[in-house]
Design a protein around this nucleic acid. Structure first.
Length: 289
DNA sequence: AAGCATGGCAACCGCCGTCGC
DNA sequence: TGCGACGGCGGTTGCCATGCT
């Protein structure tokens, strides 16, 4: 069953590309483009399969390829992106202009994975930081004013009441961020995992965030760096491409990642989320970019 | 200097999703 | 609706360079 690999065709060359082959491919693509990879080698006079041509072009011959060693910043970006996206090399590459998925994958396996393991001590430190954030979150219950309501969905998924349909336009986001404020009172000072914070924006529109402290702990540097990357991409993002929320039970994450969960998803300005996060009791020391 | 081990990286393989017929 | 062609992706392989003994 299944299609035979295209390179199984008789007479097709495999292995490293010669400079002559490279030149043929480059000049052909520059002249005619690469509308059909399978047909390309035949038309260009290359004894390669289309897949091989495509790979060679994408990973090596493309004019916008940034060659050379990865900078420290690049490597940090990869580590953070991998933390958020996992082994989705193409998604990571899309956020690093000029770098290919193959290159990033290689760098990860040869350098960064080892570095991560080596830095496991740092992860422990990060955990301690999260613990202090939790402490901060609990402490604020005695000082921060807000209203709370019960979350009714047993699965932990956002309830319909917490997924509001009214959405600000993208252009409104900055102003919303500046003026978001808490509703005036808190009915219960105890930490209760079934409560949500109700935040009102400048239009007096209620916006709900759960107070499940463990969910708050998921909103760490990774969240902010991903939010930043989404913001910098300057496009409407695809929720499926966004690693937050990790699960439907992460009510805060849902609320943060989606603009109240409608189909017309809008990404809030990161300042907005930071404002909400801090006002909701997140450590003001975070994020650290 | 020779042989072996290890690392780095280009390229390949096979699976999957999408699209057109 | 089913099927094949195709592109894209992630995992893996294998070659070559370098380091070590």
């Amino acid at each position: 069953m299944g299609r035979a690999p295209c390179c199984d065709k008789m007479g097709l060359k495999k292995g490293p590309w010669s400079s002559e082959e490279d030149q043929i491919l480059i000049s052909y693509v520059q002249k005619y483009g690469h509308g059909n990879w399978r047909a390309l080698p035949k038309q260009a006079g290359l004894l390669r399969c289309g897949k091989s041509c495509r790979l060679r072009w994408i990973n090596y011959l493309r004019p916008d390829i940034k060659r050379g060693n990865f900078s420290e910043e690049d490597e940090e970006s990869i580590i953070k992106l991998h933390e958020m996206l996992g082994n989705r090399w193409s998604a990571i590459a899309a956020r690093l202009p000029g770098r290919t998925d193959n290159e990033i994958k290689n760098v990860w396996h040869t350098h960064l994975k080892k570095r991560i393991n080596k830095n496991s001590d740092d992860i422990i430190c990060k955990k301690k930081k999260s613990d202090s954030k939790k402490e901060f979150s609990q402490k604020r219950h005695s000082t921060c004013s807000s209203t709370t309501t019960n979350v009714t969905d047993q699965s932990g998924a956002p309830t319909s009441s917490s997924m509001q349909s009214s959405q600000p336009s993208s252009s409104d986001l900055s102003s919303v961020a500046e003026t978001t404020s808490f509703a005036a009172e808190e009915s219960n000072n105890n930490v209760d995992d079934n409560k949500v914070v109700v935040v009102k924006d400048e239009n007096n529109m209620e916006r709900q965030f759960s107070e499940i402290s463990s969910n708050f702990l998921e909103i760490d540097e990774s969240f902010w760096s991903e939010a930043l990357s989404v913001e910098n991409s300057n496009t409407t993002y695809d929720p499926s491409e966004f690693s937050y929320p990790f699960s439907s039970s992460s009510i805060n994450s849902v609320e943060l990642a989606y603009d109240y969960g409608t189909n017309d998803t809008i990404v809030h300005d990161m300042d907005f989320w930071y404002d909400v996060f801090v006002k909701a009791g997140g450590s003001p020391e975070l994020p650290e970019f």
